[in-house]
Amino acid sequence: MARLLHTRPAATGAHRRTALVAAVLGCAVLVAAGCSSSSSSSSGSSGTASSRRPEASSFSGQLPSALASANASVLESVSAAAASASAAAASFEASVSAQIAAGRSEAKAVLDKTQGAGNAISDVTITGLPKAQAAGFNAALVTVLNNTQAKASYAIKVEFSEQSGKVVDTTYLNVKDLAAGATATPTAFSSLDRDQALVSRVVQAQRY
């Protein structure tokens, strides 16, 4: 009986060691399973994220259509404005050139025989026009007032000069058959040196 009491604790201790080993092994299995599950989950997430990435071929390397459209619209507006300004300049030049050509030769012929500033220099005044109003040209409005009691014609010479006083262009105007007391307002212009402001002045005016 004493021998049996002596061996039971030993058996109990053995059982405890066995149970402890089993518990440790069980934990190891659970940890391994957890790691495997985590790895699988991570791998699954990675696969899902990868499947969401846009393909490189989906990028064209061009501006979004809205921006491209806006850019094209701006370019078209600039082009249209430039074309409009060019047309306005051409129209202004053609109109004034026709006016000048109508009597240029006659006015020059009269003034070539005129001494000094002429007999009608006090009847003529000149006012510069803004370039925006003259399609970008250097231009001036010439006002001719017939102070006499009879109809008369006027030959006028206008010079355009730089700020230094150097004359760069000359034009002639001819006002035909202006009634007594009446006023005429022809336009003088220069197509030269449009990039700078020129000074205009009447240098000769002859009534005939």
Rank of each mutant, 00 (worst) to 15 (best):
T185C: 05
K151V: 13
S77W: 08
A70V: 11
G128R: 14
K131W: 00
S190N: 08
P54R: 08
D177I: 03
S42D: 05
A182H: 09
G34H: 06
Q115F: 08
A107H: 05
N119H: 07
A68E: 12
T18M: 02
P9I: 04
E106H: 11
A140T: 15
A68D: 13
S42W: 04
E159H: 14
L145R: 09
Y208A: 07
A83M: 04
V74G: 01
A109Y: 09
N146M: 02
A72R: 12
S36W: 09
G165N: 12
I100R: 07
T170E: 06
N119Y: 04
D112C: 02
G13A: 15
L145V: 12
S57R: 10
A184C: 11
P64L: 02
K108M: 05
V142A: 11
A56W: 01
T125Y: 02
L141N: 14
H15C: 07
G136H: 09
V29F: 05
D112G: 04
A70G: 03
D169R: 02
A56R: 11
A32K: 00
A94V: 00
C35P: 00
G26N: 00
V158F: 07
A134R: 10
T148C: 01
V144R: 05
R207K: 14
L145W: 01
N119I: 03
E55R: 15
I121M: 01
A155K: 11
R3F: 09
G118N: 05
L67P: 01
I126S: 06
C27V: 11
G165W: 11
S69P: 08
D112L: 04
N147A: 09
K176E: 08
I156Y: 06
S36P: 00
S38Y: 05
R8H: 07
K131N: 02
A72M: 04
A180I: 06
T187D: 04
V168Y: 02
S122L: 12
R207L: 04
S51Y: 04
K151G: 09
R17T: 13
G116I: 14
K151M: 10
A2Q: 15
N146H: 02
V29A: 12
V24E: 00
